[in-house]
Design a protein around this nucleic acid. Structure first.
Lengths: 166, 166
DNA sequence: GGGTGTAATGTAATGTTATAACGTATGGCG
DNA sequence: CGCCATACGTTATAACATTACATTACACCC
Protein backbone atom coordinates (compact mmCIF):
# COMPACT_ATOMS: atom_id res chain seq x y z
CA UNK A 1 0.00 0.00 0.00
CA UNK A 2 1.20 3.44 -0.83
CA UNK A 3 -1.67 5.61 0.18
CA UNK A 4 -1.43 8.97 1.87
CA UNK A 5 -0.61 8.19 5.48
CA UNK A 6 -2.28 11.39 6.67
CA UNK A 7 0.67 13.28 8.14
CA UNK A 8 -1.46 14.84 10.85
CA UNK A 9 -2.05 11.39 12.27
CA UNK A 10 1.52 11.29 13.49
CA UNK A 11 0.61 12.66 16.89
CA UNK A 12 -0.22 9.47 18.74
CA UNK A 13 0.18 8.23 22.21
CA UNK A 14 0.01 4.70 23.62
CA UNK A 15 -2.12 4.55 26.72
CA UNK A 16 -1.17 1.03 27.59
CA UNK A 17 1.94 2.50 29.20
CA UNK A 18 1.73 4.54 32.32
CA UNK A 19 1.04 8.07 31.29
CA UNK A 20 2.72 11.27 32.38
CA UNK A 21 1.14 11.88 35.76
CA UNK A 22 2.94 15.18 36.27
CA UNK A 23 1.63 16.56 33.02
CA UNK A 24 -2.00 15.68 33.62
CA UNK A 25 -1.87 16.88 37.21
CA UNK A 26 -0.50 20.24 36.23
CA UNK A 27 -3.14 20.50 33.56
CA UNK A 28 -5.87 19.80 36.07
CA UNK A 29 -4.34 22.31 38.45
CA UNK A 30 -4.23 25.09 35.91
CA UNK A 31 -7.73 24.31 34.71
CA UNK A 32 -8.96 24.58 38.27
CA UNK A 33 -7.15 27.87 38.70
CA UNK A 34 -8.61 29.25 35.49
CA UNK A 35 -12.11 28.38 36.64
CA UNK A 36 -11.76 29.48 40.22
CA UNK A 37 -12.26 25.94 41.42
CA UNK A 38 -9.94 23.50 43.20
CA UNK A 39 -8.00 20.41 42.32
CA UNK A 40 -9.07 18.66 45.47
CA UNK A 41 -7.70 15.47 47.03
CA UNK A 42 -10.51 13.30 45.68
CA UNK A 43 -9.94 14.62 42.19
CA UNK A 44 -6.22 14.09 42.60
CA UNK A 45 -6.71 10.54 43.74
CA UNK A 46 -9.02 9.65 40.87
CA UNK A 47 -6.65 11.15 38.34
CA UNK A 48 -3.63 9.48 39.90
CA UNK A 49 -5.34 6.11 39.77
CA UNK A 50 -6.32 6.55 36.15
CA UNK A 51 -2.83 7.70 35.24
CA UNK A 52 -1.26 4.73 36.96
CA UNK A 53 -3.72 2.29 35.43
CA UNK A 54 -3.00 3.52 31.93
CA UNK A 55 -6.13 2.05 30.38
CA UNK A 56 -9.87 2.54 30.64
CA UNK A 57 -11.60 1.45 33.83
CA UNK A 58 -15.17 1.69 35.05
CA UNK A 59 -16.30 4.32 37.54
CA UNK A 60 -17.29 1.72 40.11
CA UNK A 61 -13.90 0.11 39.78
CA UNK A 62 -12.31 3.44 40.61
CA UNK A 63 -14.56 3.77 43.63
CA UNK A 64 -13.61 0.31 44.82
CA UNK A 65 -9.89 0.82 44.36
CA UNK A 66 -9.94 4.14 46.20
CA UNK A 67 -11.93 2.73 49.10
CA UNK A 68 -9.90 2.12 52.19
CA UNK A 69 -11.31 2.51 55.68
CA UNK A 70 -13.68 5.07 54.23
CA UNK A 71 -15.79 3.79 51.37
CA UNK A 72 -15.67 6.01 48.29
CA UNK A 73 -19.12 6.27 46.72
CA UNK A 74 -19.78 6.13 43.00
CA UNK A 75 -21.26 9.59 43.00
CA UNK A 76 -18.02 11.08 44.27
CA UNK A 77 -16.14 9.35 41.49
CA UNK A 78 -18.54 10.63 38.87
CA UNK A 79 -18.16 14.14 40.25
CA UNK A 80 -14.40 13.93 40.07
CA UNK A 81 -14.57 12.47 36.58
CA UNK A 82 -16.77 15.31 35.44
CA UNK A 83 -14.19 17.82 36.58
CA UNK A 84 -11.33 15.89 35.03
CA UNK A 85 -13.12 15.55 31.71
CA UNK A 86 -13.74 19.29 31.62
CA UNK A 87 -10.08 19.80 32.35
CA UNK A 88 -9.25 17.58 29.41
CA UNK A 89 -7.24 15.11 31.50
CA UNK A 90 -9.69 12.27 31.20
CA UNK A 91 -11.87 10.90 28.46
CA UNK A 92 -14.88 8.63 28.55
CA UNK A 93 -15.07 5.69 26.17
CA UNK A 94 -18.73 5.38 25.24
CA UNK A 95 -18.21 1.96 23.74
CA UNK A 96 -17.16 0.61 27.12
CA UNK A 97 -18.57 3.07 29.61
CA UNK A 98 -15.07 3.46 30.95
CA UNK A 99 -12.69 6.30 31.70
CA UNK A 100 -9.02 6.84 31.05
CA UNK A 101 -6.40 9.53 31.62
CA UNK A 102 -4.78 11.24 28.70
CA UNK A 103 -1.67 13.41 28.77
CA UNK A 104 -2.12 14.33 25.15
CA UNK A 105 -2.94 18.01 24.74
CA UNK A 106 -5.78 18.23 22.28
CA UNK A 107 -6.03 21.42 20.27
CA UNK A 108 -9.35 23.17 19.90
CA UNK A 109 -11.46 21.57 17.23
CA UNK A 110 -9.02 18.74 16.79
CA UNK A 111 -10.59 15.49 15.66
CA UNK A 112 -9.30 12.70 17.82
CA UNK A 113 -9.60 9.00 17.10
CA UNK A 114 -9.58 6.53 19.98
CA UNK A 115 -8.29 3.10 19.07
CA UNK A 116 -9.27 0.51 21.63
CA UNK A 117 -7.63 -2.89 21.73
CA UNK A 118 -10.21 -5.61 22.14
CA UNK A 119 -7.59 -7.91 23.67
CA UNK A 120 -5.82 -5.79 26.29
CA UNK A 121 -8.16 -2.81 26.48
CA UNK A 122 -5.42 -0.27 25.90
CA UNK A 123 -6.30 2.93 24.09
CA UNK A 124 -4.23 4.83 21.59
CA UNK A 125 -5.23 8.22 20.30
CA UNK A 126 -4.48 9.96 17.08
CA UNK A 127 -5.54 13.32 15.75
CA UNK A 128 -6.46 13.07 12.11
CA UNK A 129 -7.07 15.97 9.83
CA UNK A 130 -8.12 13.61 7.08
CA UNK A 131 -10.88 12.18 9.24
CA UNK A 132 -11.91 15.73 10.14
CA UNK A 133 -12.19 16.61 6.49
CA UNK A 134 -14.20 13.47 5.81
CA UNK A 135 -16.62 14.36 8.59
CA UNK A 136 -17.04 17.88 7.29
CA UNK A 137 -17.68 16.48 3.83
CA UNK A 138 -20.27 14.05 5.13
CA UNK A 139 -22.00 16.78 7.10
CA UNK A 140 -22.04 19.12 4.16
CA UNK A 141 -24.11 16.83 1.97
CA UNK A 142 -27.02 17.03 4.39
CA UNK A 143 -26.55 20.46 5.85
CA UNK A 144 -25.68 18.99 9.23
CA UNK A 145 -23.71 21.24 11.54
CA UNK A 146 -21.17 19.10 13.41
CA UNK A 147 -20.31 20.06 16.95
CA UNK A 148 -18.70 17.21 18.76
CA UNK A 149 -17.44 14.08 17.00
CA UNK A 150 -16.88 10.85 18.87
CA UNK A 151 -14.71 8.30 17.11
CA UNK A 152 -13.88 4.98 18.70
CA UNK A 153 -12.33 2.15 16.75
CA UNK A 154 -12.22 -1.34 18.13
CA UNK A 155 -9.40 -3.57 16.95
CA UNK A 156 -6.09 -5.00 18.05
CA UNK A 157 -3.07 -3.02 19.08
CA UNK A 158 0.26 -3.89 17.49
CA UNK A 159 1.37 -5.85 20.52
CA UNK A 160 -1.72 -8.05 20.78
CA UNK A 161 -2.00 -8.52 17.02
CA UNK A 162 1.58 -9.71 17.00
CA UNK A 163 1.12 -12.25 19.78
CA UNK A 164 -1.87 -14.06 18.31
CA UNK A 165 -0.39 -15.09 14.99
CA UNK A 166 -2.41 -13.75 12.11
CA UNK B 1 -14.82 26.73 1.00
CA UNK B 2 -13.85 24.71 -2.01
CA UNK B 3 -12.54 21.58 -0.46
CA UNK B 4 -13.09 18.06 -1.71
CA UNK B 5 -16.65 17.24 -0.74
CA UNK B 6 -15.78 13.55 -0.51
CA UNK B 7 -17.94 12.09 -3.28
CA UNK B 8 -18.50 8.85 -1.39
CA UNK B 9 -20.36 10.81 1.26
CA UNK B 10 -23.25 11.25 -1.13
CA UNK B 11 -25.05 8.20 0.12
CA UNK B 12 -27.01 9.69 3.01
CA UNK B 13 -30.33 9.07 4.55
CA UNK B 14 -32.39 11.19 6.91
CA UNK B 15 -33.76 9.16 9.78
CA UNK B 16 -36.00 11.89 11.00
CA UNK B 17 -38.49 10.78 8.38
CA UNK B 18 -40.26 7.50 8.67
CA UNK B 19 -38.06 4.91 7.11
CA UNK B 20 -38.88 2.24 4.59
CA UNK B 21 -40.53 -0.40 6.74
CA UNK B 22 -40.92 -2.83 3.86
CA UNK B 23 -37.24 -2.74 3.08
CA UNK B 24 -36.04 -3.36 6.62
CA UNK B 25 -38.58 -6.09 7.18
CA UNK B 26 -37.56 -7.95 4.10
CA UNK B 27 -33.95 -7.59 5.10
CA UNK B 28 -34.70 -9.06 8.53
CA UNK B 29 -36.65 -11.85 6.91
CA UNK B 30 -33.90 -12.83 4.54
CA UNK B 31 -31.29 -12.60 7.30
CA UNK B 32 -33.37 -14.97 9.40
CA UNK B 33 -33.72 -17.36 6.48
CA UNK B 34 -30.00 -17.32 5.83
CA UNK B 35 -29.28 -18.16 9.45
CA UNK B 36 -31.98 -20.74 9.91
CA UNK B 37 -33.69 -18.55 12.47
CA UNK B 38 -37.07 -16.79 12.47
CA UNK B 39 -38.33 -13.28 12.13
CA UNK B 40 -40.77 -13.72 14.95
CA UNK B 41 -43.70 -11.49 15.98
CA UNK B 42 -41.75 -9.85 18.80
CA UNK B 43 -38.91 -9.02 16.47
CA UNK B 44 -41.36 -7.71 13.93
CA UNK B 45 -43.06 -5.52 16.47
CA UNK B 46 -39.80 -4.03 17.72
CA UNK B 47 -38.63 -3.33 14.20
CA UNK B 48 -41.97 -1.87 13.17
CA UNK B 49 -41.95 0.47 16.14
CA UNK B 50 -38.41 1.64 15.42
CA UNK B 51 -39.23 2.14 11.75
CA UNK B 52 -42.31 4.17 12.58
CA UNK B 53 -40.50 6.23 15.20
CA UNK B 54 -37.73 7.17 12.82
CA UNK B 55 -35.29 8.24 15.47
CA UNK B 56 -33.35 6.64 18.30
CA UNK B 57 -35.26 5.44 21.32
CA UNK B 58 -34.25 3.60 24.46
CA UNK B 59 -34.84 -0.12 24.91
CA UNK B 60 -37.07 0.44 27.92
CA UNK B 61 -39.11 2.92 25.92
CA UNK B 62 -39.66 0.25 23.29
CA UNK B 63 -40.76 -2.16 25.99
CA UNK B 64 -43.20 0.36 27.36
CA UNK B 65 -44.69 1.23 23.99
CA UNK B 66 -45.17 -2.41 23.05
CA UNK B 67 -46.80 -3.26 26.35
CA UNK B 68 -50.51 -3.68 26.12
CA UNK B 69 -52.43 -6.10 28.28
CA UNK B 70 -49.26 -8.20 28.43
CA UNK B 71 -46.24 -6.35 29.69
CA UNK B 72 -43.22 -6.63 27.42
CA UNK B 73 -40.06 -7.07 29.47
CA UNK B 74 -36.80 -5.29 28.71
CA UNK B 75 -34.99 -8.54 28.22
CA UNK B 76 -37.28 -9.46 25.35
CA UNK B 77 -36.60 -6.14 23.71
CA UNK B 78 -32.85 -6.56 24.07
CA UNK B 79 -33.10 -10.01 22.54
CA UNK B 80 -35.04 -8.68 19.58
CA UNK B 81 -32.62 -5.80 19.20
CA UNK B 82 -29.69 -8.18 19.15
CA UNK B 83 -31.24 -10.07 16.27
CA UNK B 84 -32.11 -6.90 14.40
CA UNK B 85 -28.63 -5.48 14.81
CA UNK B 86 -27.12 -8.66 13.43
CA UNK B 87 -29.52 -8.41 10.53
CA UNK B 88 -28.28 -4.88 9.93
CA UNK B 89 -31.73 -3.33 10.28
CA UNK B 90 -31.02 -1.56 13.52
CA UNK B 91 -28.08 0.32 14.97
CA UNK B 92 -27.23 1.26 18.51
CA UNK B 93 -26.12 4.79 19.28
CA UNK B 94 -23.51 4.45 22.00
CA UNK B 95 -23.58 8.13 22.77
CA UNK B 96 -27.22 7.86 23.79
CA UNK B 97 -27.72 4.19 24.54
CA UNK B 98 -30.53 4.23 22.06
CA UNK B 99 -31.56 2.22 19.04
CA UNK B 100 -32.86 3.15 15.63
CA UNK B 101 -33.92 1.41 12.43
CA UNK B 102 -31.97 1.95 9.26
CA UNK B 103 -33.04 1.03 5.74
CA UNK B 104 -29.65 1.94 4.37
CA UNK B 105 -27.82 -1.09 3.06
CA UNK B 106 -24.28 -0.86 4.36
CA UNK B 107 -21.64 -2.54 2.27
CA UNK B 108 -19.07 -4.74 3.93
CA UNK B 109 -16.29 -2.70 5.45
CA UNK B 110 -18.10 0.53 4.76
CA UNK B 111 -17.30 3.30 7.21
CA UNK B 112 -20.52 4.91 8.32
CA UNK B 113 -20.87 8.20 10.15
CA UNK B 114 -23.89 8.80 12.35
CA UNK B 115 -24.86 12.43 12.71
CA UNK B 116 -27.13 12.98 15.66
CA UNK B 117 -29.07 16.19 16.09
CA UNK B 118 -28.83 17.47 19.63
CA UNK B 119 -32.11 19.33 19.22
CA UNK B 120 -34.50 16.82 17.69
CA UNK B 121 -32.54 13.60 18.12
CA UNK B 122 -32.80 12.61 14.47
CA UNK B 123 -29.96 10.65 12.96
CA UNK B 124 -28.51 10.92 9.51
CA UNK B 125 -25.97 8.50 8.16
CA UNK B 126 -23.30 8.91 5.58
CA UNK B 127 -20.68 6.54 4.31
CA UNK B 128 -17.36 8.28 3.89
CA UNK B 129 -14.37 6.85 2.16
CA UNK B 130 -12.33 9.85 3.20
CA UNK B 131 -13.00 9.11 6.85
CA UNK B 132 -12.14 5.48 6.23
CA UNK B 133 -8.81 6.47 4.76
CA UNK B 134 -8.14 8.79 7.68
CA UNK B 135 -8.81 5.99 10.12
CA UNK B 136 -6.54 3.62 8.26
CA UNK B 137 -3.85 6.28 8.27
CA UNK B 138 -4.21 6.88 11.99
CA UNK B 139 -4.06 3.16 12.69
CA UNK B 140 -1.01 2.68 10.51
CA UNK B 141 1.15 5.04 12.53
CA UNK B 142 0.82 2.84 15.60
CA UNK B 143 0.40 -0.57 14.02
CA UNK B 144 -3.15 -0.77 15.25
CA UNK B 145 -5.39 -3.19 13.37
CA UNK B 146 -8.82 -1.63 13.07
CA UNK B 147 -11.85 -3.93 13.14
CA UNK B 148 -14.96 -2.00 13.91
CA UNK B 149 -15.15 1.79 13.85
CA UNK B 150 -17.88 3.68 15.64
CA UNK B 151 -18.38 7.26 14.56
CA UNK B 152 -21.05 9.44 16.08
CA UNK B 153 -21.14 13.17 15.58
CA UNK B 154 -23.31 15.37 17.72
CA UNK B 155 -24.52 18.61 16.18
CA UNK B 156 -27.59 20.19 14.62
CA UNK B 157 -29.43 18.94 11.59
CA UNK B 158 -30.21 21.41 8.83
CA UNK B 159 -33.78 21.84 9.98
CA UNK B 160 -32.98 22.62 13.62
CA UNK B 161 -29.99 24.79 12.77
CA UNK B 162 -32.26 26.80 10.49
CA UNK B 163 -34.95 27.34 13.10
CA UNK B 164 -32.76 28.67 15.90
CA UNK B 165 -31.19 31.60 14.08
CA UNK B 166 -27.43 31.33 14.07
C1' DG C 1 -11.57 36.96 64.12
C1' DG C 2 -16.31 36.54 62.38
C1' DG C 3 -19.65 36.65 58.59
C1' DT C 4 -20.85 35.51 53.97
C1' DG C 5 -21.08 33.08 49.66
C1' DT C 6 -19.57 29.53 46.51
C1' DA C 7 -17.53 25.14 45.81
C1' DA C 8 -17.12 20.64 47.23
C1' DT C 9 -18.28 16.66 49.99
C1' DG C 10 -21.10 13.02 52.52
C1' DT C 11 -24.91 10.16 52.49
C1' DA C 12 -28.94 7.88 51.01
C1' DA C 13 -31.87 6.81 47.66
C1' DT C 14 -33.26 6.17 43.11
C1' DG C 15 -33.15 6.00 38.10
C1' DT C 16 -31.47 3.87 33.90
C1' DT C 17 -29.36 0.43 31.02
C1' DA C 18 -28.23 -4.40 30.29
C1' DT C 19 -27.65 -9.31 31.26
C1' DA C 20 -27.94 -13.96 33.82
C1' DA C 21 -30.34 -17.99 34.92
C1' DC C 22 -33.68 -21.29 34.13
C1' DG C 23 -37.71 -23.43 32.88
C1' DT C 24 -41.34 -23.65 29.09
C1' DA C 25 -43.10 -23.45 24.49
C1' DT C 26 -42.79 -23.62 19.56
C1' DG C 27 -41.61 -25.18 15.11
C1' DG C 28 -38.92 -27.88 11.69
C1' DC C 29 -37.59 -32.39 10.48
C1' DG C 30 -36.45 -37.36 10.36
C1' DC D 1 -44.34 -38.89 17.28
C1' DG D 2 -39.78 -37.75 19.23
C1' DC D 3 -35.95 -34.97 18.88
C1' DC D 4 -33.39 -30.77 18.66
C1' DA D 5 -32.57 -26.06 18.20
C1' DT D 6 -34.60 -21.71 18.59
C1' DA D 7 -37.27 -18.49 20.94
C1' DC D 8 -40.02 -16.92 24.84
C1' DG D 9 -41.58 -15.88 29.77
C1' DT D 10 -40.30 -14.73 34.21
C1' DT D 11 -37.55 -13.38 37.90
C1' DA D 12 -33.71 -11.55 39.58
C1' DT D 13 -29.62 -9.00 39.54
C1' DA D 14 -25.60 -6.69 37.58
C1' DA D 15 -23.68 -2.52 35.87
C1' DC D 16 -23.83 2.29 35.04
C1' DA D 17 -25.32 7.00 36.38
C1' DT D 18 -27.88 10.74 38.67
C1' DT D 19 -30.99 13.32 42.12
C1' DA D 20 -31.72 15.36 46.37
C1' DC D 21 -30.37 17.44 50.33
C1' DA D 22 -27.78 18.33 54.45
C1' DT D 23 -23.06 19.55 55.74
C1' DT D 24 -18.35 21.05 55.43
C1' DA D 25 -14.30 23.62 53.57
C1' DC D 26 -12.41 27.49 51.74
C1' DA D 27 -11.66 32.17 49.82
C1' DC D 28 -12.86 36.79 50.45
C1' DC D 29 -14.26 40.85 52.72
C1' DC D 30 -15.24 43.65 56.67
Amino acid sequence: MHRDPDPSAACTHAHCDVIDAEAVQSRARSYAASKGTRFTPTRQRVLALLAATGKPIAAYEIAEKLSGSRKVQAVQVYRALEFLQEAGCVHRLASRSAFFACDHRHGEGETVVFMVCSQCGAVQEAASDLVARGLRGAAKTTGFRPRHPMIEVEGECAKCAGESVS
